[in-house]
Design a protein around this nucleic acid. Structure first.
Lengths: 339, 339
DNA sequence: TTGTAAGCGTTATCAC
DNA sequence: GTGATAACGCTTACAA
């Protein structure tokens, strides 16, 4: 049985109030008393019970970071920054992996979840636009959406400008002389905001230089995984007129696509240039190194944490949209080719 | 203000006891009553307060998974499996990132941490052998150590046979005809168990074929990162007599080493064969694909979860050591060479 | 500065 | 099968 505050009080012959004061810090308490109580605490090996404290104060000191899959490099890099940013302001982070399970996500959003031991949620969701809109009984839990969806004014939101990011990537491919630019990651359905926005940016860049987007050059990808990128690239390379560049909606797709190009006996960037989005570390060491759009994950994490903690303090804040910066990183996979 | 159990009881004109029975499930309660209470719950939008429940029952339903860095692919892959295995038995997982901070780790182990809202800990630690041994006031928290350290009989422990794994990797390099086998990841100090054990396996394999390990071929690496692998490989390649194979203590080190070989104008596996440990997905898509020792992360996760939950139920279980299987995966990076 | 006591929202122990 | 009531361990008015 661990010692309780009451045990310490009895042992030290003081009131619980005094012990509590000593434990939780600063309240006026004489130095002699402090020493005395501290010693009692030490001798009994007392540790405050965080659950009791939480019940009393209403704060758990924990945030939930909700992602589809934690082992996707972009998410784990973001998780790292989120954990660090949260620690900075005294919060801990519980990672919740939805595994592409919409019901799980919805339970979280509607507060149906049975074990909500946290003060706020950072949500990198898969939920479709429709699902988000029809969410009729949103939880009172402070919530910040990350990187997906259009800003609809109901939730705080931190994301890059997806249209612009895609535009920048494709524009770079065009600038290096490629003309047959394919895309991997477009969603056939209009359900998800991010792929749709990136598709818009992709087509925008093409049209700007007078190229009409071709349907067969836009390939879907279910999970933005290496395997999906590989599969989509294999299809692209089998076309009569092969693309000379591929814009992948994530670096992971790009890694898969690169491997597919090699397996087809072709080379990157000579035969096919490849660019991704996310700037995962893997792409800095791959051969060739991967050009990409870098998202500032620590900026995203800090802004999200700042926003959710602000909302914990002041629940009625007006939802804001925060746009995170992105940067084009040119590496070997899109090097210009000798003509 | 969210509705409480008491609110529901008053609203439905029944006792709190009855509401609690309905909420927590099975206790005998008439069907009519159940319906009645359920409706009241629905109308008031009542959600049980998990904190209050926890204070009463002493269970949070949460486990902590403690790793140095969550964005290391091996750890994030393991985290994924841990989260899944925990969900399977009704637990959630809080991820705690120590960031190579020994004090943080020690606080966790000694229960000095102020916010321990979990029922048990899975610990993939950095603490040195000495630190672990001198841990004089271990917390009563159920604890399972993952993948590090020797089994000293005080904690449950799930890990591969590190000596054997290293031996298998090096043996494979030797079998393909390489004779100058270097290693990256050895720790100069004898503080950490894993690198030491892998060094033992490395030297064992060499000696078995009559090769005396050379000091200059064994390079340390602080963080098992791509960058450390790169740096160590650069040094190895600058030696008068260049190694013709490198055994890296992690796949991430191997990815860095591979890039260093290319940057030196050499090729893998023709000039230098490379093998790692961990079997991260990245190595299946890299060029060349990376030979490695595969650890069964889902086995490790399941065993660890089974063990920690068992210990939550029955605190006095005798600590056990569970050895996880490993398998050699031969890929392109160690292909045999034409002589 | 310190003591007393009332909750926080639940579950569990007792009756009936 | 259901109803009152005492904990669980802590924080914090309110008193002293």
């Amino acid at each position: 049985m661990p010692a309780t505050l009451r045990d310490v009080a009895e042992y030290a012959q003081v009131s619980m109030r005094t012990v509590s004061n000593v434990v939780s810090g600063y309240t006026h308490v004489s130095e002699r008393m402090r020493k005395h109580v501290l010693q009692a605490i030490d001798e009994l090996g007392y540790r405050p019970n965080p659950v009791a404290r939480t019940l009393r104060t209403g704060r758990t000191g924990m945030l939930a970071f909700v992602v589809p899959e934690i082992d996707v490099p972009y998410f784990s890099a973001l998780a790292r920054d989120v954990i660090d940013a949260a620690a900075e302001v005294g919060y801990r982070v519980m990672i919740d992996q939805t595994g592409h399970d919409h019901d799980h996500e919805r339970d979280l959003l509607t507060g149906n979840d049975r074990t909500m031991l946290f003060d706020g949620i950072l949500f990198s969701p898969l939920v479709t636009k429709a699902e988000l809109l029809e969410m009729n009984s949103p939880t009172q839990m402070p919530l910040v959406l990350l990187g997906e969806h259009e800003f609809d004014g109901r939730y705080d939101h931190v994301a890059i400008d997806n249209v612009r990011a895609a535009y920048d990537a494709v524009r770079h491919l065009l600038d290096t002389g490629r003309t047959r630019v394919a895309a991997i990651g477009a969603q056939p359905l209009e359900e998800y905001a991010t792929p749709q926005q990136r598709t818009v940016g992709y087509e925008l860049a093409l049209r700007e230089v007078g190229i009409e987007p071709e349907q067969r050059y836009a390939r879907p990808a279910a999970h933005y995984s290496r395997a999906d990128g590989y599969g989509a690239a294999v299809e692209l390379l089998a076309l009569d007129v092969r693309p000379d560049a591929i814009f992948c909606f994530s670096d992971l797709l790009a890694m898969g696509a690169m491997r597919a190009v090699f397996d087809a006996g072709l080379s990157v960037p000579q035969d096919v240039a490849i660019i991704g989005i996310d700037n995962i570390e893997e792409g800095r060491f791959s051969r060739p190194s991967l050009s990409t759009i870098s998202l500032d994950t620590s900026f995203i994490a800090e802004q999200a944490i700042a926003r959710v903690t602000a909302r914990i303090e002041t629940p009625d804040l007006r939802p804001r949209q925060i746009v995170a910066p992105h940067t084009l990183r040119i590496r070997e996979s899109t090097a210009s080719i000798e003509r």
